[in-house]
């Protein structure tokens, strides 16, 4: 560790990664009021895990975000989105018509948008990390001089 050439990178990344992940959740839940939403938040959360993987190695990243979560997350997101539509259907409205989800239409819309954005968030995060894991696991380790 004495001769670790990336000590600065590691220290700064350790400070930044939690902030990036927190910002992702801010973008997710503040999407109704400011710019952002499920898609952007998902990409930002995935970017924080990809950054962790770049700095600390793929094996550590796979411990922080286990690959089993990917399969669950990406299907859960689509199910959550489609399920919201089906629930609205069951309640007597059209598919994805959120107005019937709560006692009044505006509340129903709020609930619907929240659920749908959560679904987008799950799928986008999982798929982005899945693509990175799939590509990142393929390549052999690159030596320092090779760059």
């Amino acid at each position: 560790m004495n001769h670790d050439p990336h000590v600065l990178l590691r220290v700064i990344a350790k400070f930044l990664i939690p902030l990036i992940a927190l910002f992702a959740f801010y973008v997710q839940f503040h999407g109704d009021f400011g710019p952002g939403g499920g898609f952007q938040a998902g990409v930002i959360l995935a970017a924080s895990i990809i950054l962790y993987s770049l700095i600390f190695g793929l094996e550590n990243a796979k411990q922080a975000f286990p690959p089993i979560l990917i399969r669950i997350g990406m299907s859960l997101g689509v199910l959550l989105y489609g399920g919201t539509g089906v629930v609205a259907w069951m309640q007597g409205g059209e598919f994805l018509n959120y107005s019937v989800l709560a006692h009044d239409a505006i509340h129903g819309q709020h609930w619907g948008i929240l659920a749908v954005e959560l679904g987008v968030f799950c799928t986008v995060t999982s798929v982005m990390i899945a693509i990175f894991y799939a590509f990142g696991s393929r390549q052999p380790q690159t030596s320092e001089e090779d760059w």
Partner: peptide, 15 residues
């Protein structure tokens, strides 16, 4: 979702 599924089917999660 389909893109992720394709990547997983072709490359696998562990590459």
């Amino acid at each position: 979702f389909a893109a992720g599924l394709g990547v997983l089917l072709l490359l696998g999660l562990d590459g």
